[in-house]
């Protein structure tokens, strides 16, 4: 099966007064229809910037996508002009954001906002667009969708708003859905519901999902494959199962070890990765993780490790492992 989303060599920089910030460097991945790919990493490792680059929503200036290609069903988004890109957004590639509380306009009814999206991309009557809005709300399992469509965002709970956002994002059946931390702002029970919902819709509609998160629990639950990012680079890639069972990169090893375990005994210190993510305008010469890495050798300070296949379907960028 040909991948729906093919990203290769994507690089995004920000020109700032403090120098050039390399937010995304040479990131490549692909997602098939109906597949979920998770992008994981700490705050500031370039996950959201990768997502915004895919949508071409990087604020420019100061941001600039310097290299690479983003192909959705064969069309390279980075080669499109702005009107062409506008047609793709929403209809081919859609995004849901972290904050459901502020991602809807408080002055418009939820139904109107979804209908607005539909009429933007499809030549349908106002009435048909409204009917689609109700249908989508029903689809994301919002009870009494006819009534809810006429309500304003403040009349809904956070979980319901996030579902409304998902309804909006999927209203035009995009081939790719980018979910940027879709559950971070929600409490745990609602998180599970929203993740289940995204999973079900993905199967129903055959949407390729790019799930951006720092929550490894969420990844284990929902993703087929995952990539790990560190300081703007992809450092590890593989199936979720494989990566959780046997991580190759010390960074992912560290992340997995940091998950608190049940039954570890009271008073045991939580594990952590020492240090912080380096500033993206001042990266070390070698491996960006080397200063925090317990397994680092001299070579790690010297050269950036290439991404190599460690096992079939499992690649990591590390000199040591």
């Amino acid at each position: 099966m040909a991948p729906v989303l093919e990203v290769s060599g994507l690089s995004t920089v920000f020109h700032t007064r403090a120098g050039i910030v390399r937010a995304v460097q040479d990131v490549s991945f692909s997602v098939e229809a109906g597949e979920t790919l998770a992008i994981v990493g700490e705050s500031g490792c370039g996950k959201t910037m990768t997502a915004l680059s895919l949508m071409r929503l990087i604020p420019s200036p100061p941001g600039e996508i310097t290299a690479g290609s983003v192909k959705v069903a064969g069309t390279d988004l980075l080669k499109l002009d702005e009107p062409g890109m506008r047609k793709m957004r929403g209809s081919q590639i859609a995004m849901i954001f972290q904050e459901p509380m502020t991602a809807l306009n408080p002055l418009l009814t939820v139904g109107r906002q979804i209908a607005e999206m539909v009429s933007l991309h499809e030549n349908v009557s106002r009435r048909a667009a409204n009917a689609r809005a109700v249908e989508m709300l029903h689809h994301v399992r919002i009870p009494a969708p006819e009534r809810r469509a006429r309500e304003y965002p403040h009349q809904m709970s956070g979980g319901m708003r996030q579902r409304a956002m998902i309804a909006m994002a999927l209203a035009c059946r995009p081939k790719v859905l980018i979910a940027d931390e879709p559950t971070t702002a929600l409490d745990v029970t609602i998180q599970a519901q929203v993740l289940d919902l995204i999973g079900d819709l993905r199967k129903e509609l055959g949407t390729a999902v790019v799930l951006i998160t720092h929550d490894l629990g969420v990844v284990a639950e929902t993703a087929d494959r995952m990539i790990v990012m560190y300081a703007g680079r992809k450092v590890e890639e593989g199936t979720t199962k494989d990566l959780f069972a046997d991580p190759s990169h010390p960074y992912l090893q560290g992340l997995l070890a940091s998950i608190p375990k049940f039954g570890a005994g009271e008073g045991t210190r939580l594990r952590e990765i020492p240090g912080i993510v380096p500033a993206l305008n001042n990266l070390p010469k070698g491996c960006a993780f080397a200063p925090r890495c317990s397994a680092a050798v001299a070579k790690c300070q010297e050269a950036i490790p290439p991404l190599e296949t460690k096992r079939p379907g499992h690649a990591a960028a590390c000199w040591v492992t």
Binding site: A94, T102, A103, L104, N105, L120, H121, M168
Partner: peptide
């Protein structure tokens, strides 16, 4: 605000 960004993400001019 987020909903302005979100509006851009659904392809609004």
């Amino acid at each position: 605000l987020n909903y302005v960004e979100a509006a851009r993400a659904i392809g609004m001019g």
